[in-house]
Design a protein around this nucleic acid. Structure first.
Lengths: 165, 165
DNA sequence: TGATATACTCAATACTGTTGAATATCTACA
DNA sequence: TGTAGATATTCAACAGTATTGAGTATATCA
């Protein structure tokens, strides 16, 4: 941590370059993925996809509020997203057995199948994007990405804590 | 390129991990940045910001259709985005001198100042996200990111070419 | 001059995001 | 037991953005 701080003070270029690159990649990645998801086979939006994939990842039924936290959406907008996924029969809504205030959501077999199709379609794009990297670079990249992801999750938590204060 | 293809066939885990990490980082980065831009000081949306920052980057007036291409938005939605930026006096619209069909857009001093403020606010988040990386890792990360960005831009171009065919 | 191409905007519709209010249900305490 | 307060979710109203296709203005070329 200290090393980056120091570098930031003395030579601010690299960090700004990375910031710029991450922003551009994020924007581009979302745009490209949005277009892929708009294909007639899928007809999903980004929030719908990220909601669906989280449900597939946890593998069991999930509380609305937990789902909202995990996908970084407000409970209010998640309601609409879930409405549309239920309509497409990709997920199912139910009530918690004991606490009937809680709405539980679960991915269907159809939802799992769709995600698998999307991942397959996505692979072609990823191969092209990462095609110029050597094997070593791919490995290094993965390690660094994991750390960046962890760092970004810290930012989110910090922001939430600060909001409470 | 060949090396990644080969690895994909033999051991598909790494590439999928990277795919997952890039998707998560993109989603998270956009969400976090969205919240930052929603601050009362800025009140911008993501499309508005990326449009503004492209205008600042080119530094001179820019045709609507070029701006749409560069920011990966349709001409139709860009019209609305530009409307709102003009309303906030962050950019200005004018007509091309010779070809009066073309609408030219240019960032104002106020727009430049706002971007500078946003960058400054963003820096805190980035420091926290990248804080765990060593200096070497930061340098390596930057080099790899540039290649990934180039790769992703190839994907976009490929997609556009294929759409024409 | 008239036909066609180009550049952009507009209109209708769908989805997502925000806020704050409304509803239902649970919990705890007198 | 009954009721106040906490919790979980939805709803309603509104703004922004994406998509499509139609409409308008201007330019170009025969």
């Amino acid at each position: 941590m200290a090393s980056v701080r120091r570098e930031l003070q003395t030579e601010r270029g690299t960090l700004e370059e990375i910031e710029r690159a991450i922003m551009q990649i994020s924007w581009l990645a979302q745009r490209q993925f949005m277009q892929l998801l708009d294909d007639e086979r899928f007809r999903l939006t980004l929030p719908q996809f990220y909601t669906l994939i989280h449900l597939q990842h946890v593998g069991e039924e999930c509380k609305m509020s937990d789902l909202a936290d995990a996908t970084h959406q407000s409970a209010a907008s998640l309601t609409g997203v879930v409405d549309r996924l239920v309509e497409k029969q990709l997920i199912e809504r139910s009530r918690h057995k004991h606490d009937r205030r809680q709405v539980m959501v679960c991915i269907t077999a159809r939802g799992i199948a769709l995600i698998s199709e999307i991942r397959h379609a996505r692979r072609e794009q990823m191969q092209m994007a990462l095609g110029q990297l050597s094997e070593d670079e791919v490995d290094t990249f993965q390690l660094i990405l994991d750390q960046v992801l962890a760092g970004m999750q810290r930012v989110t938590e910090y922001g939430e804590n600060r909001r409470l204060a």
